[in-house]
């Protein structure tokens, strides 16, 4: 019985005749090799995640270790908080605007990189730099570019006669938001470009040729052939983009610290300000948890796509 099972499961019948030691017990070996990773993920991602939910229902300060249950009080407080309301709107605006810009730019850049021209490899290398450089260091470079006195952007606009007065990039809520979105788009469009490019490489060449032979124009080919075929990969890139953008803390924190007058806070930076700087862990956790629905939706869509790919095999 056991013998026949072994033969059926494994393509190497010789194994079945040997005495099975640990080194050969595939199921057991598999479990042993997987356990450390599972334990790490459960203990250091799963449990803290549960703790985040617990914290949001308690009055916890960074100073003491006590957790006292306060029910939905944290949520009730922040929902009435005008800073929080602003942060929700900012997060949505920041995410949607930058994802639209990133996607348009990525599809355009991928189409450029897909064509044959001299210097293509160099361009690809250079375009990837923003994504590869550490975010905190790149943000510092931009802080300096947007400097209130020495901004090279202001200088250039003035020289070309495009600017009358002066732009205080981090002194004005609208300008500060533009700056934050620009830096984020600069940083993430390379990543989206490479993903879209990988998707384009997977589109069979003969489809394009067939469209050409049928006399399809460039725009028609773009909208009726290429874009629909690119849709799955663009979805993947947008999903990652939404996660990276809606939860991003570094850029907002480094460029504006949520200022001026707390007008550019997103959920993550507000959670940091209240939870770490203000030492109110409970409220910080409650603010951060408002990102959860976004993540659940993204994860669900990803799982569905993965399943579809599996079925398609």
């Amino acid at each position: 019985m056991a013998l026949r099972k072994d033969v059926r499961v494994d393509a190497a019948p010789a194994v079945a005749f040997r005495h099975a030691t640990l080194a050969d017990r595939e199921d057991l070996l598999g479990r042993i090799m997987l356990t450390p990773a599972l334990v790490y993920v459960i203990v250091l991602v799963g449990l803290p995640f549960a703790l985040a939910i617990l914290l949001s229902f308690s009055a916890a300060s960074a100073g003491s270790l006590a957790l006292s249950w306060v029910g939905v009080e944290n949520f009730a407080t922040i929902i009435r908080d005008s800073q929080f309301q602003r942060a929700v709107l900012n997060t949505v605006f920041f995410t949607v605007t930058s994802q639209i810009l990133v996607t348009v730019m990525a599809v355009a850049a991928a189409n450029v990189l897909d064509a044959a021209f001299a210097g293509k490899r160099a361009m690809r290398f250079l375009i990837l730099l923003p994504w590869a450089a550490p975010v905190s260091l790149a943000s510092m470079a931009w802080t300096w570019i947007f400097d209130s006195t020495f901004s090279v952007i202001n200088w250039t606009l003035k020289v070309f006669g495009l600017l009358e007065g002066w732009l205080y990039w981090f002194g004005d809520p609208a300008l500060a938001m533009i700056a934050i979105i620009s830096v984020h788009v600069w940083r993430t469009f390379p990543f989206a470009t490479v993903i879209v490019l990988a998707g384009m490489a997977a589109i069979p060449q003969d489809i394009n040729e067939a469209a050409l032979i049928d006399g399809a124009s460039f725009w028609r080919k773009l909208f009726q052939v290429n874009l629909p075929l690119l849709l799955p990969i663009v979805t993947v890139s947008v999903l990652f983009g939404v996660v990276f953008t809606s939860t991003d803390l570094s850029i907002v924190w480094l460029l504006t610290r949520g200022g001026p007058y707390n007008s550019t806070h997103v959920l993550s930076s507000l959670a940091f300000q209240r939870g770490i700087m203000g030492a109110d862990l409970g409220q910080g956790a409650a603010i951060a948890l408002f990102l959860l629905p976004v993540l659940v939706i993204v994860a669900t869509v990803m799982l569905r796509m993965a399943r579809r790919a599996e079925v398609g095999v």
Binding site: P48, L281, G284, L295
Partner: peptide, 9 residues
């Protein structure tokens, strides 16, 4: 699961 959800716990 982003750092934003985990840095507080």
């Amino acid at each position: 699961v982003p750092p934003t959800l985990l840095f507080l716990p």
